[in-house]
Design a protein around this nucleic acid. Sequence first.
RNA 1: GCGCCUGUAGCUCAGAUGGAUAGAGCAACGGACUUCUAAUCCGUAGGUCGCAGGUUCGAAUCCUGCCAGGCGCGCCA
Length: 554
Amino acid sequence: MKSRIQTLIINAAREALAAGALTSNQFPDVLVEAPKSDSHGDFATNFAMLAAKTQKMAPRRIAEALVTHLGDGGGLLTRTEIAGPGFVNFFVRPTAWPALVSQVLDQDRAYGASAIGRGQKVQVEFVSANPTGPLHVGHGRGAAVGDSVARILAHCGFDVQREYYINDSGRQIETLGRSVYLRALELHGRPVDFPPDCYQGDYIRDLARELLATEGADLPSLDEAAAVARCARFAADSITTGIRQDLVDFGVTYDRWFSEQSLYDSGQVEQCLAALKARGIVYLHEGAWWFKTTALGDEKDRVVVRQNGQTTYFASDIAYHIDKYQRGFDRVIDVWGADHHGYIARMTAAVEAAGQRRDQFQVILVQLVNLLRGGQPVAMSTRSGEFVTLKEVVDEVGADAARFIFLTRDYDSPLDFDLEVAKQKTNDNPVFYVQYVHARIASILRKAAEQGIDSVAWHDTAGERLVEAEEIQLIKALARYPEVVEMAAQALAPHRIPYYLMQLAALFHAYYNKHRVLTDDRDLTVGRLCLVLAVQKVIRNGLGLLAVSAPDQM
RNA sequence: GCGCCUGUAGCUCAGAUGGAUAGAGCAACGGACUUCUAAUCCGUAGGUCGCAGGUUCGAAUCCUGCCAGGCGCGCCA
């Protein structure tokens, strides 16, 4: 519908030019929007204002020229008007809308999908938490955002791969091993001095107990280095398995789990450092090797190999990102916690040094989550090990509510997550409001089947009966859905989906309260059933992009 | 000190590329269930868009400077 209007405008502008009513063939992009107020029509364009400069004409005169050559779009429009500083408002013939319902029914799960991605290969890397402890709520937000972005992009025709990078190398892992080792000795009755820089959480004791009970009975008799290494491997594997399970329970799966250690084992880190040294981008200074990231926009150069010969995480991250592009991704999106924002400049520099364009690398920075209970902050401290895990939150409030809340805020804004609110079944917690639409419609369909209407097939005589204002409103909202998805993909803004769904849900609930779907009039009933079925499909599709379930009963 | 993010109704938040009278939900107040699920709906009230300048036909949106909060600024990860 919108693109038809756009075409009408372009044609009108060309004809106006040919007729001498416009002066320049330089036309701006034609933007058509749905005005906020119905009194401004179904669609509006600001074409005349945008064209004012190149046409050297007053906006309203351009608008007049446009309207004169516009016609009625083959009966699509009832009228057009010029308003305000030069808007052209379009009023669509109400009987033109219902056909869209059959389009939604036909396209079904594909309604809202598009091909704007043109098969471009995109990788979304998200969560990638270190395997040194369970996921907490903050990771949950990153998981919800990354997963949803991946779903939206895939729906828009991008070839998406989701990946989790496991930091299974380096000092943190060693510390993890040491922590478990010391707890194991402790459990074995040996007095130990547990250092403060080791991981304090109870899960470390659990891991030690598990290890001793299974493959680690001989642990206390091994020499320390070997025992720590074994503890590290056991603990990292076990925690990674737990993380994977927590994510599955949260509705998130990956195409690939990528091991940092593998980059060392394959020699990729070494190779890429050697190549960068050969090019002089990595240079020796005071015994350490530095990456000249300042040449590419960073505020200072960064160390990749320390004086003691150990590589930094940055070194393996460079090798990792080079590997991504070698695997053929045109575009790489990393989802990071906001506390890593200082890392963006150097990573971008590294990507550019590796021969990619800057815009092939994007970081989605997810702001922090403040966990509350009944308005009061829940204390979270990683150091003491007292933090609330993602699993605990999902167990308490449910995956649907948690995901919806994570995705209903722009990830650029810090998020207050109140456990009590997340459990409420009021409109304070809109996930149920949206799901309720799906359940209500399912209920109507069940009732219809009981009355012998089991196939809801569109036909024009039924569609013509959709004339109520609330019905046209609903159809117009359905018509907007594809562009909402497209916009969410372009702006990497998943939060637009839940906001759209809440709006659609509000329109449906209002309609439901005012009009009956099941009536004595067969054509009217079928028309309305088609409409609500279309609404149900869009709700389901939209919730699918958020990985929130669409229940038939509540 | 420097950098990034945030500041919109009492509360939680939307307002992409500058557009018409700044929108929802919650909370408050008043109404609607013998009818397809009341986890719903209808109505009322609620605003110096942090502050001050600037850019232009037009600014919550762009620019500059302040103010407030969060997070970063290691040869840590």
